[in-house]
């Protein structure tokens, strides 16, 4: 299945590989080690999540998704998407496959933007495991307060852009 996005990724890989190769300082070797580590860590999860998602698509009634998260529901999907994104207590494999499932079931672009943006900013697992120790509660509170409207603004802008 060759598509523009696949061709773009192939071209980008070659350009970056060429730049790294020209450095001649072992960048390619370090990138290769990194690549293997990331593939070993994430690819098995992706496969399992895709299997779960495939079943989920059959189980979840698509009418329910399009009714509540579809374009026809106006701005409500953005609110639901933003709030749901904040509550996903898992890594990118789960968050993005959930988004892909919702997209497949008819969720609007604005809802997906709000969902992913909210997860990116407020990923609960990241806040609890890393940020409370790395940033401290005061900075975390400031960051979360000022970032609170962002998923909803991004979702609304996406709704009108799409």
């Amino acid at each position: 299945m060759i598509s523009p996005s696949l061709l773009f990724l192939v071209a980008l890989l070659f350009v970056m590989g060429y730049i790294a190769g020209r450095r001649g300082d072992g960048s390619i070797q370090r990138a290769w080690v990194r690549f293997k580590k990331q593939v070993a860590e994430f690819l098995p999860r992706m496969v399992l999540v895709i299997i779960g998602t495939g079943f989920l698509l059959q189980i979840i009634p698509s009418e329910l998704i399009s009714e509540n998260l579809g374009r026809g529901a106006g701005l409500k999907p953005i609110l639901i998407g933003g709030l749901a994104g904040m509550l996903v207590p898992a890594g990118p494999a789960v968050a993005f496959t959930t988004a892909a499932t919702l997209a497949g079931a008819g969720a609007s672009e604005g809802a997906l933007v709000a969902f992913i943006t909210a997860w990116c900013i407020f990923a609960i697992h990241r806040i609890l495991i890393y940020e409370t120790s790395l940033a401290g509660p005061k900075f975390l509170l400031i960051r979360c307060t000022v970032a609170l409207p962002i998923p909803f603004i991004a979702g609304t802008v996406a709704h009108y852009l799409s």
Binding site: L9, L12, A31, Q38, L43
Partner: peptide, 15 residues
């Protein structure tokens, strides 16, 4: 796509 993207991200990381 994901495999390609992992390669790109690894190169970005070193560059």
């Amino acid at each position: 796509r994901i495999t390609l993207a992992f390669g790109i991200a690894a190169l970005l990381w070193v560059l």
